[in-house]
């Protein structure tokens, strides 16, 4: 049994899924804050939300880049 590989897979899974979920959740939260009518939230909140979504997309693309042999050799 290749325990090292198992740990590696578990770690990579946790890292990848965790970062995507955290970034997207932050994006969702910030969008929600920016959408509040009651408070007048600072104007930088909405761009920050979009930045989170963007980073999340970049994280996914980065993962794909690492995996597809055509790109990473």
């Amino acid at each position: 049994m290749k325990w090292l590989e198992l740990v590696q897979v578990a770690g990579a899974t946790l890292l990848a899924a965790g970062s995507v979920v955290v970034l997207y959740s932050l994006g969702v939260r910030l969008t929600a804050v920016a959408g509040d009518i009651r408070e007048n939230s600072p104007s930088w909140i909405r761009p920050l939300a979009y930045a989170c979504f963007g980073l999340c997309g970049v994280a996914v693309l980065c993962g794909l880049y690492l995996i597809i042999p055509y790109f990473s050799g």
Binding site: Q8, T13, V20
Partner: peptide, 19 residues
């Protein structure tokens, strides 16, 4: 969303690492 992200991450990382 969380379930799908975990599924994709697990499949891709495992098949990439040869497991």
């Amino acid at each position: 969303f969380a379930a799908e992200t975990s599924t994709a991450a697990a499949i891709l990382s495992s098949s990439h690492l040869g497991f």
